[in-house]
């Protein structure tokens, strides 16, 4: 090759000039990724709706019979708070207050981690009482209750209840866990001083993801626990 005269470093980051829409690559990429996530949760939630309506006239378990609404309501509150703290973190760095941003980011991480912790507790509790992906475990406390009160406990639809509940909330929990890990990564970068008033793309982008995960949870909480 006859162009040995060029001296540009081949390892420099590609595409410094970003143009097209007025959104930087990372943010655009996150939006595009979230579109894909919407389809994923639509598949799960859509299946839930189809199965639940398709199961009629067999009743679904009544809200609060199997799942604890109080504890999950607290969890929902926690997640909403974490969205607020995420907004606070973003607002702080936009104002140039790096220190405050770190505090709010840490609050967000802790809320997220607590959410996952409570969900793990909820799962162990449920499985202990006999609620599992295949339905009510034979011989368990729940199975006996359902046998005695088939309508409020949705005895005929227990299998679908378990299948959809664990799949939907499980994948949501997985997404929260991924969010907590990613935010921790962002937090470590923040400690190293990677973000400033001028460049805080990582904070904004992880924030987008986090708000999406919250939004999904509000939908799930409504349709799985409350209805």
């Amino acid at each position: 090759m006859a162009h040995a005269t060029a001296t540009v470093d081949v390892m420099r980051p590609p595409a410094p000039a970003e143009r097209g829409v007025d959104v930087y690559n990372l943010k655009l990429g996150m939006w595009v990724f979230l579109a894909s996530e919407v389809m994923f949760f639509t598949a799960l939630i859509g299946s839930y709706i189809v199965l639940r309506f398709g199961a009629s006239p067999n009743p679904w378990a009544q809200p609060g019979k199997v799942l604890s609404i109080q504890i999950t309501a607290f969890n929902t509150f926690l997640l909403i708070c974490s969205s607020v703290s995420m907004v606070k973190a973003y607002a702080s760095i936009a104002d140039g207050n790096v220190k405050l941003m770190k505090v709010w980011l840490l609050v967000t991480i802790l809320c997220g981690a607590t959410f996952v912790g409570i969900q793990v507790y909820e799962y162990t509790h449920l499985i202990h009482h006999g609620f599992q992906p295949s339905g009510y475990r034979e011989g368990s406390e729940l199975a006996e209750l359902a046998a005695a009160n088939p309508v409020p406990y949705g005895a005929a639809t227990a299998g679908l209840y378990g299948s959809t509940f664990f799949t939907m909330t499980g994948f949501h929990g997985f997404h929260v866990t991924c969010g907590v890990i990613s935010m921790t990564y962002v937090f470590i970068r923040a400690l190293r001083g990677k973000y400033s008033q001028q460049d805080h793309r990582g904070i904004e982008v992880i924030g987008l993801y986090w708000h999406f995960v919250d939004l999904v949870w509000i939908i799930l909480f409504t349709i799985v626990y409350l209805i």
């Binding site: 299946s47 199965l51 199961a55 992906p133 295949s134 639809t157 679908l160 959809t164 664990f166």
Partner: peptide, 16 residues
């Protein structure tokens, strides 16, 4: 996991 999405015996739907 023994779920029942597509299992008609437990109310699941094959066409899903």
């Amino acid at each position: 996991l023994g779920t029942h999405f597509f299992d008609p015996a437990a109310g699941g739907q094959v066409l899903l």
